[in-house]
């Protein structure tokens, strides 16, 4: 299924050479496989994001291996050095094999 996600860059205005903060957040239950459904009493199967990849203009800058102990609706914060205009793409994979991606434009000023 499609997951809602968001990339936020701080500060909003930046120029080449700046190191900016990248917040990537995604709506995901991050099921551990340990929780029981309150109504049925059955174990809810594990379903979690297991890999997040950040690509800036086609170059992989960061990959994160993730396990089930990240909180639901996770937020990942990393930093990135601005090196020209282009696109930041985030690809995230789930333990079920499902893959989603989202991207944002990088527009340095000056």
């Amino acid at each position: 299924m499609e997951r809602k996600s968001l990339i936020k860059i701080k500060p909003k205005k930046y120029k080449n050479g700046d190191v900016v903060k990248i917040n990537f957040m995604v709506m995901h239950p991050m099921e551990t496989g340990l929780r029981k459904d309150k109504k049925t009493g059955k174990i809810v199967p594990a379903q979690y994001i297991n890999n997040v990849k950040f690509e800036y203009n086609g170059k992989v800058i960061t990959t994160i291996n993730v396990w089930e102990s990240l909180s639901a609706n996770p937020v990942f914060t990393i930093y990135m050095k601005i090196d020209g205009p282009g696109e930041l793409k985030v690809t995230f994979t789930e333990n079920t094999g499902e893959v989603n991606e989202t991207s944002t434009k990088i527009k340095p000023k000056g």
Partner: peptide, 12 residues
């Protein structure tokens, strides 16, 4: 954490 509140997605 308010700066990157997961609810930002819901507000969006």
């Amino acid at each position: 954490m308010l700066e990157n509140n997961p609810a930002d997605i819901m507000v969006a």
